[in-house]
Amino acid sequence: MKVLVVNNMAPFVWGGAEELAVNLQKNLIAAGHQSEVLRIPFQWEPATRIPSQMLMVRALELWNVDRVIALKFPAYLIRHPHKTLWLLHQYRQAYDLFDAGQTNLPADQMGSDLRHLIHQADNECFRESRRVFTNSEVTRGRLRKYNGFDAEVLLPPLNDPELFPGGPAKGYIFAGGRINGMKRQHLLLEALAQTPSSIRLLIAGPPDTPADGQKLVDLTARLGLGDRVQLDLRFLPRRVYADYLNGSFAVAYLPFDEDSLGYVAMEAATAGKALITTDDSGGVLGLVKHRQTGWVAEPQPTSLADVMAAVYADSAITHKLGTAARDLWLAMGITWPQTIERLLS
């Protein structure tokens, strides 16, 4: 079967969704299908430019394709008679982030009109799709709440589990992944300033914008944490990233209301590392159970500082929680062959 994976593209930005698309393609081919990834450019700033991009996606016509598996807004608006959605992202700034006051839509009638347009286009797309899967319970709940559509949750498998066998801890808490305000690495720095000086932090990953990276550099300097924090702010080779994670004491990942379990959390669990997150981190909470597989803090520095101190307080407990995180992940039985079978069912 010829299966086209359709995803967005923000030039020179690479994250979990891009990894997922590539690995979906790879595993479709491994399952005996032909597969390619169609990446459609999407620029969400300014928000008033979003409708023209939605229209252009909608105007595309596909030939020589048996199935489409579409992942994100607005790429999933593409027309095809046999389209399956594996929903990673709606345009959250028109939904839950709008309610949370974290939207880039204008605060006027135009903003309301844009929001209505996005909702209507999404609803049309969900109606016309043969199947709708989501990548987490959070995404599923959001879809049900805002659009009235139900979906089956299909958690994304890890793409390269062999890179995360774990290993001896080298004495730091690791915070990996994209660097931006939504991932809240700055909270970890503010928390670290309230912990004993023996605790160290390694933040590594590509900033979305130069300003996102500079903010962490400045904050580290302002809090006088230069000797306790290592910032490796770049797009890391997978091996370097894996070495950082495998050598950590615990892994912190604090996105605001993440849609999915999150690759960072899945990789940490695979490596048997205890996890730190916050109680508003959404899908990540599927893997992080307080004092069972890690710690769930409040999203503010004092609470996080307590948790970071707990990581160092008893290394045996930290190790035990990491092992439990790996057990929980393996028990979920999330593999690519099963995922492909569901997507093409």
Partner: peptide, 26 residues
């Protein structure tokens, strides 16, 4: 008309349909 039809289907408002941010790129 085809593009305008899609926008109408999505219940686009008149001001949105005539905004330069929509029309210029198209």
């Amino acid at each position: 008309q085809a593009l305008a039809g899609i926008l109408r289907q999505w219940e686009a408002s008149p001001s949105l349909m005539t905004s330069s941010d929509l029309t210029e790129p198209l």
